[in-house]
């Protein structure tokens, strides 16, 4: 592993935490906006109610922040592992749903979350032994 790659670690860690925070905010905003404007009829009235809904803007800000973070990460991060690791969002959304929205947590959800976290840790371990081809 080169010194250059070693110095990427804090960048990836902060980048992914930021990405997951933005993604989670977007999903939470989406959930509240969808609930408050339900049912989604795609009529002009429904579109207007989505525009007037304040949670829509948390969702929009989350997506925008996630996009900027994602493009910055992808400049150096390999797309395959980065895309897989971005699914940590599934776990954080689940945590928010259980702690704040009082949704029930089931055993398969816990096992699934552990598999996701385990896979991401394995990706981080794998990074240490891989020389990526030089970027063009």
């Amino acid at each position: 592993m080169s010194a250059g790659q070693a110095s990427m670690r804090p960048f990836y860690l902060i980048g992914f935490l930021l990405l997951v925070a933005f993604d989670t905010a977007a999903q939470i905003g989406f959930k509240f906006a969808a609930t408050n404007t339900s049912p989604a009829t795609f009529s002009p009235e429904w579109i207007f109610s989505v525009i007037c809904e304040k949670w829509s803007y948390l969702s929009l800000a989350g997506y925008l922040g996630a996009f900027i973070t994602w493009m910055t990460l992808l400049k150096t991060a390999p797309i395959g592992p980065a895309f897989a690791a971005s699914h940590l969002e599934v776990v954080t959304v689940l945590i928010v749903c259980v702690t704040w929205l009082h949704e029930k947590l089931t055993l398969p959800q816990i096992i699934g979350s552990l598999l996701i976290v385990g896979g991401i840790i394995l990706f981080a371990v794998a990074e240490a032994e891989i020389e990526e081809p030089a970027h063009v």
Binding site: P81, A84, A85, H87, G112, S113, L114, V117, G119
Partner: peptide
Amino acid sequence: ASILVAAGVAL
């Protein structure tokens, strides 16, 4: 690692 994450998301 990919299979673990995919299996976790599926579960």
